[in-house]
């Protein structure tokens, strides 16, 4: 499997990264080089292997339903790029 420039553009859009036309050539080559590393996995027989999502065989721990968090909105708003009165602001989103 190897990627063409169009696919690279689509992936970039999905990942919200912009790739300029001058970069696309190089990016495509690099990504295909990396993907060629992955090809050898195809050699391995894994039909009856359980996929491993976690290194440890543990169950999810559940927390009690208790409100434990104080209102830190002022501190959080302080580090935001743009805020209004208590809101985070972004350019108008048209639905």
């Amino acid at each position: 499997m190897s990627l063409n420039k169009e696919q690279v553009k689509e992936i970039a859009q999905l990942a919200k990264l912009s790739i300029s036309d001058s970069e696309i050539e190089q990016s495509t080559i690099e990504l295909n080089n990396i993907l060629s590393l992955m090809a050898e996995l195809g050699e391995i027989e894994t039909d009856h292997v359980e996929p491993m999502s976690h290194p440890l065989d543990m169950s999810q721990r559940l927390r009690e339903d208790v409100v434990s968090e104080a209102d830190l909105s002022e501190e959080f708003q302080e580090i935001a790029p743009k805020t209004g009165k208590r809101h985070f602001l972004v350019p108008t989103v048209i639905e």
Binding site: M1, L3, Q7, V8, I11, A12, L14, A15, L17, S27, L31, I34, L35, M38, L41, G42, I44, T46, V49, E50, P51, M52, S53
Partner: peptide, 23 residues
């Protein structure tokens, strides 16, 4: 990010992500 986005995307998940989890 690009590699990961591609490996998780529809049609490639099994060949990349799932395969890698098995290996």
């Amino acid at each position: 990010i690009m590699i990961g986005t591609y490996a998780l995307s529809a049609g490639y998940y099994d060949a990349y992500y799932l395969k890698a989890q098995k290996v």
